[in-house]
Nucleic acid binder design. Structure first.
Lengths: 217, 217
DNA sequence: GTGATCTGTAAACTAGTCTGACAATCTTAG
DNA sequence: CTAAGATTGTCAGACTAGTTTACAGATCAC
């Protein structure tokens, strides 16, 4: 795989990764508002200009950074899904619980929540990219595992789950497991109908009583 | 770890890795004499000049490539050592067997042996760098796991094992396991005396801190 | 306000890579 | 054995990515 990636592409990816890792490293000791672009660049062993060339602005960089962090979480979530391929409802509950547990333990998220919320805009008001990106990937994760599900249902589920995940991660009200099983209860019926392997006839336009509107987190 | 590696260094390493991987990829379908430098460069997505700048000549590149391949093997060998920390003799036998098995199954080594031996010089007559490099790393691997052993004994053992490994890999005469236990018999007495943890009068210190976890790299 | 710091942009400079070309060497066909 | 073709190793010039220095505007501390 790495052999088939041309150097130029890999080098660019490496640059971004190095910058992200540098940012994470800086964020482990102080808040985002205390970290300057110069700090990030220096920590990555790169000039400030290079950083600005790769990411146009400070906000753009923060956005991309948050997106990459989210990507890491989704990787873990996919593992949880794989552990419950036969039971979609359990898969969601497990994945959601794992995500919340990981999020609660992640030093970056802890800092982001406690640190005056200076980074919160990137996952909420400015979070369109994040929600879209995460939903896209979750959509793919679900679709490949339960291919019989209707595209529309998968899209709806993915986006709502992502929004709920962000909401509960930034504002936890109960232990991860408890929240997760609540969500499992809430979305269970929908999931059973949409993803169930059983040979039930799933009419896409069937009764859709509970259509949770895209509630902003 | 990757965060603490400055970009410039990582980029250089990436370039070398990309070139090595490209070479391996090429070598999986034809022999080294059939692979041109242009092929390697192209497969890595890099110009021929860049290749020549990083490695002065074709031979130098081949040398470095062989060295890196060997490094991969030693990584596996270290794993085998860790599985027998309490019994150095068994550790050597297991490691040697694992190496020979892996070597026998490795498409590159198979091709190198059968392909008219065009690459053999790099592990034999031209193989000084390889032997020294591999011995150095094996020496380190042993010394960190059995720190009570005398430096001289470790160095002697490491170099001979490396040479034997190369010899048997390039000219196998029996199944890997059989050869490995023969080597175990041959070097066993020396190992028992040099590395044995038992309270014999080895070394200046009878005080031995049993380090159970030699951090797997 | 004043000074200090940081962002975002611009310019000139440096290092690394690419392209195309070349002589020298090696291979192969005839 | 010779001629044609391919490959190695090297070079010069163009191009690109990254560095350095500098500066205007915004923000914050005092």
């Amino acid at each position: 795989m790495s052999a088939r990636t041309p150097y130029a592409v890999a080098a660019r990816e490496l640059l971004r990764d190095t910058l992200f890792d540098a940012a994470r490293h800086e964020l482990e000791r102080r808040a985002w508002s205390e970290v300057t672009m110069a700090d990030v660049a220096a920590a990555a062993g790169v000039s400030r200009q290079t950083l600005y060339k790769e990411f146009g602005s400070r906000d753009e960089f923060a956005q991309a950074f948050v997106l990459r962090e989210a990507d890491g979480f989704i990787g873990a979530v996919e593992g949880a899904l794989d552990a419950h391929l036969e039971d979609p409802r359990a898969a969601l509950t497990a994945a959601f619980g794992l995500f919340l547990t990981a999020a609660a333990g992640d030093p970056l998220i802890r800092a982001a929540i406690r640190g005056g919320g200076e980074m919160l805009p990137f996952v909420t008001t400015q979070g369109q990219t994040l929600v879209e990106g995460a939903a896209e990937r979750l959509r793919w994760a679900i679709a490949t595992r339960w291919p019989q599900a209707a595209e529309h249902d998968v899209a709806l589920l993915a986006e709502c789950v992502v929004r709920l995940a962000i909401s509960y991660a930034t504002l936890p009200v109960a232990p991860a497991g408890m929240t997760a099983s609540s969500i499992g209860e809430l979305l269970g019926p929908f999931i059973d109908r949409a993803l169930k392997l059983d040979a039930m006839e799933i009419g896409p336009a069937a009764a859709r009583e509970v259509t949770p509107a895209a509630a902003p987190a």
